[in-house]
Measured scan of single mutants.
Amino acid sequence: MEQGTVKWFNAEKGFGFIERENGDDVFVHFSAIQGDGFKSLDEGQAVTFDVEEGQRGPQAANVQKA
């Protein structure tokens, strides 16, 4: 798993971006967030995640709040 920081996340649209430790950004969809209840992330929040190849390039999977 990688570690990163939430760059931004739009809860209304259900997606955002995580900044990886290497400085690259990776797309995150709310469906990739682990846990119960409303799935959202806060700007600046530390997270761990896997990276999978999506239809439009790399995207975060198995996102967990650190």
Rank of each mutant, 00 (worst) to 15 (best):
M1A: 14
M1I: 12
M1V: 13
M1R: 13
M1F: 11
M1K: 15
M1Q: 14
E2I: 13
Q3K: 15
Q3N: 12
Q3G: 08
Q3W: 14
G4A: 03
G4M: 01
T5G: 03
T5P: 02
T5L: 10
T5S: 09
T5R: 15
V6M: 04
V6C: 07
V6H: 01
V6I: 09
K7G: 03
K7W: 03
K7P: 00
K7L: 06
K7R: 12
W8N: 03
W8M: 04
F9R: 02
F9A: 02
F9M: 03
F9H: 01
F9S: 02
N10E: 04
N10C: 09
N10G: 03
N10A: 08
A11W: 11
A11T: 13
A11M: 11
A11I: 13
A11Q: 12
E12L: 14
E12Q: 15
E12K: 15
K13L: 10
K13M: 10
K13W: 09
G14C: 03
G14I: 02
G14M: 03
F15S: 03
F15Y: 15
G16C: 02
G16Y: 01
G16L: 01
F17E: 03
F17Q: 03
I18E: 00
E19Q: 15
E19I: 15
E19A: 15
E19K: 15
R20H: 06
R20C: 06
R20N: 06
R20G: 05
E21M: 13
E21T: 14
N22I: 11
N22T: 12
N22K: 12
N22Q: 11
G23R: 10
G23H: 09
G23M: 11
G23P: 02
G23S: 08
G23V: 05
D24I: 14
D24H: 14
D24S: 14
D24A: 15
D24M: 12
D24F: 13
D25Y: 11
V26C: 05
F27E: 02
F27P: 03
V28M: 07
V28L: 08
V28W: 03
V28Y: 04
V28A: 03
H29R: 04
H29D: 03
H29Y: 05
F30Y: 13
F30G: 04
S31I: 05
S31F: 05
S31A: 07
S31T: 12
A32E: 05
I33K: 01
I33Y: 03
I33E: 02
I33D: 01
Q34N: 10
Q34T: 11
G35C: 08
G35S: 09
G35M: 13
D36F: 12
D36P: 12
D36G: 11
D36T: 14
D36E: 12
D36R: 11
D36V: 12
D36A: 12
G37C: 08
G37F: 07
G37H: 06
G37V: 06
F38T: 07
F38N: 07
F38R: 09
K39D: 05
K39N: 06
K39W: 07
K39F: 06
K39V: 07
S40F: 13
S40L: 08
S40E: 07
S40Q: 09
S40G: 08
L41M: 05
L41F: 05
L41A: 03
L41V: 05
L41Y: 03
D42N: 13
E43H: 15
G44F: 06
G44C: 08
G44H: 08
G44R: 07
G44E: 04
Q45F: 05
Q45L: 07
Q45P: 01
Q45D: 13
A46M: 13
A46R: 15
V47G: 00
V47Y: 03
V47P: 00
V47F: 02
T48Q: 08
T48E: 06
T48V: 11
T48I: 11
T48C: 08
T48W: 14
F49A: 00
F49R: 00
F49M: 04
F49C: 01
F49W: 02
F49S: 00
F49V: 01
D50W: 13
D50G: 09
D50V: 13
D50I: 14
V51A: 04
V51F: 07
V51C: 06
V51E: 04
V51I: 14
V51P: 03
E52H: 11
E52F: 13
E52G: 07
E52R: 10
E52A: 10
E52M: 13
E53H: 12
E53A: 11
E53M: 15
E53G: 07
E53P: 12
G54Q: 07
G54Y: 06
G54S: 11
G54V: 06
G54I: 04
G54C: 06
G54F: 06
Q55H: 12
Q55R: 15
R56D: 08
R56M: 09
R56P: 06
R56A: 09
R56W: 15
R56H: 11
R56C: 09
G57T: 04
G57I: 04
G57L: 04
G57F: 05
G57V: 04
G57Q: 04
P58E: 06
P58L: 12
P58S: 09
Q59A: 07
Q59W: 10
Q59D: 02
A60Q: 00
A60K: 00
A60H: 00
A60C: 05
A61F: 13
A61L: 12
A61G: 08
A61Y: 11
A61V: 14
A61T: 12
N62D: 04
V63Y: 00
V63H: 00
Q64L: 11
Q64I: 11
Q64G: 08
K65E: 07
K65W: 08
K65I: 14
K65R: 11
K65M: 10
A66I: 14
A66R: 14
A66M: 14
A66N: 11
A66F: 12
